[in-house]
Design a protein around this nucleic acid. Structure first.
Length: 854
RNA sequence: GCGGAUGUGGUGGAAUUGGUAGACACGCCAGAUUUAGGUUCUGGUGCUCUUCGAGCGUGGGGGUUCAAGUCCCUUCAUCCGCACCA
């Protein structure tokens, strides 16, 4: 009995694939193209199980499509700008570029051992000038077409990373990476006009029919379009007006006061000679925006000493407050409050003794019985207490109120989004320099195209606080491209999501030095047909890329709008956690399982078992892919990744699971290399006499092809593995050297080898060769189904009595009702169950079931 | 609070249009092989009752139907996302 020698065989085939350029893609108008892409990794130094799962899923799709004759593009690259490189550089006294390139080298080698079908000739790394040169050009083009602008704005400041974060990167009021509470700061920043595409990005989500519903909903909520009205309130004693956004213009007659955000310009102005106001504004700016902070914070406000007049009611005065629950970032940073129909307004009104006047009467309720106490009424109803709106339903009243506002010049209908423009400035070194120049005379001037790329300086001080490019003694000093006078470079760099917003297009033409990519090549390959990655990018990378592709289209780079036609979001790789008596986390390798108990491998002490969570260094519940590949081989690791859980759910990594996959790999190897009898030669014709048993397995073989094909098309990879095991189990039962058996082995072993190829490619190549073939699996292609074999001659169906299973009967396929009824009623078990009672009714579903009602 | 999922054996999970619940594994039990362990092979394994046989079973309750894991109503639990969005 031989053991599958994975280390030798896997290395052999990996070399062979590279030598023969199997995965190198070129444009070919005669074949349908298929672009498979996994989210490219950040080069942290080591690949982890999450990477292995991600690339295994993509690899199954890529190899399957190759075998089906598609012209497949399956590239790989490195998302290599980012903060960890700077931190590592400081820690290890090295340079970010050196650290990054070394990491890429070792990760590339690790990926090589897993046997993925990547086209390495297209490899790219975003930190190299030959990549970022093109995005500097893109940014200048965006600037020229009004898609990029600079503005002074309140930004999210991460005090740990000393940089600005985009809204999308603030999670629970904390920096997405540092975990530190984010502060508000007023800074001059570069923005991309993603809001120009808000409607388009929202509407086109409907067309992304091969995206997970969850991601589509998350993007919809993130953009959050709401229709309503702009209302202007005159401010008593001043010439300017207060602009307010509302979705409920129908409740205008219920207005009782106005409120503005703490960082609203009017608030700042009034605070100048009012210390009490200034103090309150300060307090609001310090307040966290996390869930707990919001929950605990009570509604607070301060009267700013100004009143507004009601647009519809002459002489009605509304006090203007600064309120801590009004956000500057949404609408116009100011509201009118209608306490009867908004809970926050009501809480505030009760606290500061403001009027509560109901104007929406719930249906079927009398106005005399309707009072507001502690709960605002936010439902529908009929408008009352509202002059010309009385008697209308809410929708009609909205339109009527807006029409009136428009007549009076006091407002108009408008649409507001939650989506803000994308702030791309970062005060970091290890990013792409923003190609802009500040000239005292000419203002902001883009770098001349001929001067690109603006490269990062090599000599840099990273451990001083603040922006390293700003500190550099000479880098930022330059000349104005327009007037040639001394000028200053922009010292901020791009958010790293800038690089990942177009890399999929660069992969279409990665070695082009004149342009970002050839338009024809991009048009040939794009959109990505199947994108695979984690759910964590649902509103970050995936939304930015959708925007960026539209911006590139607008600037004439390409002709598509949506970068990713199909998206699959995989689950996380999880593992149990272990803690010793001192609550120190332990590696899975540090513990031994004995029955239900767990002990420390070295000191034998009892170990506490924690729940299974995503593998992470901090909890030490990690298993190194390199170790697994060394002990079991890539195919076994891949097989286990695919077999246990559906790809979109979390995968529980277990020792017994990988062992099980390893045993199966060997069983399959032995089944084909050491069969229980002869294998007929290649091309042997189907014998005339085939025994029933052989025919059954031959049928199963074709049913398996059909099943696997549909499983692979629909990402049901765990089910595909189960089917393969079913088939190989059946093939393992046949023994003997008869002609029909030898022929079955030849045909079914070949098919089995073909259908496992996307999952365990090395094993499959080797078996194919052992079966006497000279071609690769890609050339072998996908087996063809004989549709006739999918239908059996006889089938077993259930027979129920009163809906309860009492027997099964074997009948010819497509037997008619009378025959079926006859067989069912004569079945011994059924006769017994009927007990000579009168049959009321017999339901017969051909080829399915018989139900006898008594 | 809003939005989205998910609840099936000891465990991971299978189950076209409603039509034999538990495929395929992990684990466990018994046996064979082996010097022992491991490997390998064979058989068994949803629960309950006394074997034959029967009853019960897809988070709980109710309903539609000849027939419900699947459809409808209701309720509970868990997970994820967003969150003072006017």
């Amino acid at each position: 009995m031989s053991q599958y020698n994975f280390s030798e065989i896997e290395a052999k085939w990996q070399d062979s694939w590279i030598e023969n350029n199997i995965f190198k893609a070129t444009e070919d108008p005669n074949r349908p193209k298929y672009y498979v892409l996994e989210m490219f990794p950040y080069p942290s130094g080591r690949i982890h199980m999450g990477h292995v799962r991600n690339y295994t899923l993509g690899d199954v799709v890529a190899r399957y499509k190759m075998m089906r004759g598609f012209n497949v593009l399956h590239p790989m690259g490195w998302d290599s700008f980012g903060l960890p490189a700077e931190n590592a550089a400081i820690e290890n006294k090295t340079h970010p570029a050196k650290w990054t390139r070394e990491n890429i080298k070792s990760m590339r080698e690790q990926l090589g051992t897993l046997g993925f079908s990547h086209d390495w000739s297209r490899e790219l790394s975003t930190c190299e000038p030959k990549y970022y040169k093109h995005e500097q050009k893109m940014f200048i083009d965006f600037y020229k077409s009004g898609l990029a602008y600079q503005k002074e704005s309140w930004v999210n400041w991460d005090p740990m990373e000393n940089t600005v974060l985009a809204n999308e990167q603030v999670v629970d009021g904390k920096g997405w990476r540092s975990g530190v509470t984010v502060e508000k700061r007023l800074l001059s920043q570069w923005f991309l006009k993603i809001t120009d595409f808000a409607d388009e990005l929202l509407d086109d989500i409907k067309k992304l029919d091969r995206w997970p519903e969850k991601v589509r909903v998350m993007q919809q909520n993130w953009i959050n379009r709401s229709e309503g009205a702009k209302v202007f309130f005159n401010i008593i004693g001043r010439d300017d007006r207060l602009e307010v956004f509302t979705t409920r213009p129908d409740t205008l007659f219920g207005a009782s006061f106005c409120a503005i955000a703490a960082n609203h310009p009017l608030a700042g102005e009034m605070a100048k000679d009012n210390p009490k106001l200034a103090e309150f504004i300060d307090e609001c700016n310090k307040l966290g925006t996390s869930e707990e902070a919001i929950e605990k914070a009570e509604k607070k406000g301060v009267y700013i000493g100004l009143d507004a007049t009601h647009p519809f009611i002459k002489d009605k005065k509304l006090k203007i407050f600064i309120a801590n629950f009004v956000l500057m970032e949404y609408g116009s940073g100011a509201i009118f409050a209608c306490p009867a129909h908004d809970q926050r307004d009501l809480d505030f009104a009760r606290k500061y003794n403001q009027d509560v006047m109901p104007v929406v009467l719930p249906n079927d309720m009398d106005s005399d019985d309707f009072t507001i106490t502690d709960e605002a009424y936010t439902g529908n109803g009929i408008i009352f207490n509202s002059d010309f709106l009385n008697g209308m339903d809410a929708e009609t009243a909205k339109s009527a109120a807006i029409a009136k506002l428009q007549d009076l010049g006091m407002g108009e209908s408008t649409i507001t989004y939650r989506l803000r423009d994308w702030g791309v400035s970062r005060q970091r070194y290890w990013g792409c320099p923003i190609p802009m120049i500040h000239c005292d005379d000419c203002g902001i001037i883009p770098v001349a195209e001929g001067d690109l790329p603006i490269k990062l300086p090599e000599d840099v001080m990273l451990d001083a606080p603040g922006n390293p490019l700003d500190h550099h003694p000479s880098w930022k000093y330059t000349k104005c491209p327009k007037c040639n006078k001394p000028a200053i470079r922009e010292t901020d760099t791009f958010d790293t999501f800038f690089e990942s917003s177009w890399y999929f297009a660069r992969f279409c033409d990665p070695n082009n030095s004149d342009q970002a990519f050839c338009r024809d090549k991009a048009n040939y390959w794009l959109p990505v047909d199947q994108y695979v990655g984690g759910i964590e990018h649902a509103v970050l990378h995936l939304l930015y890329s959708r925007f960026f592709t539209r911006a590139l289209k607008k600037c004439g780079y390409l002709d598509i709008k949506e970068p990713f036609a199909g998206l699959f979001t995989q689950g996380m790789v999880c593992h149990e956690t272990y803690q010793d008596n001192n609550n120190k986390w332990l590696l899975p390798g540090d513990v031994i399982h004995k029955g239900d108990n767990i002990f420390h491998r070295e000191n034998g002490e009892a170990v506490k078992l924690g729940r299974s969570i995503k593998m992470s260094k901090s909890k030490k519940n990690v298993v190194d892919p390199a170790e697994i590949v060394n002990s079991y081989g890539a195919d076994t690791a891949r097989l286990f990744m695919l077999s246990d859980s559906p790809p979109d759910r979390d995968l529980e990594w277990t020792e017994s699971g990988i062992e099980g996959a390893w045993r199966y790999t060997n069983r399959l190897w032995r089944l084909i290399t050491e069969p229980n009898g002869k294998i007929a030669p290649i091309g042997t014709k189907q014998p005339d006499n085939i025994s029933k048993n052989v025919m059954d397995i031959w049928r199963l073989t074709h049913k398996t092809i059909a099943g696997i094909t549909s499983d692979l098309e629909s990402f049901h990879f765990n089910r595909a593995v189960a089917r393969i095991r079913e088939l190989s189990n059946a093939l393992g039962t046949i023994k003997g050297d008869a002609d029909d058996i030898a022929w079955l082995r030849r045909k079914s072993f070949e098919i089995l080898t073909q259908i496992i190829a996307p999952m365990t490619p090395h094993l499959s190549e080797e078996l194919w060769q052992q079966l006497g073939h000279k071609t690769t699996m890609v050339d072998a292609g996908w087996p063809i189904i004989d549709e006739k074999l999918l239908i059996d001659d006889n089938i077993t169906i259930a027979v129920q009595v009163n809906g309860k299973l009492r027997s099964t009967i074997n009948i010819p396929t497509d037997a008619n009702r009378d025959e079926i009824e006859n067989i069912a009623l004569n079945d011994e078990k059924i006769k017994k169950a009927l007990d000579n009672k009168k049959v009321k009714k017999i339901i017969i579903v051909p080829n399915r079931i018989v139900n006898i009602v008594i």
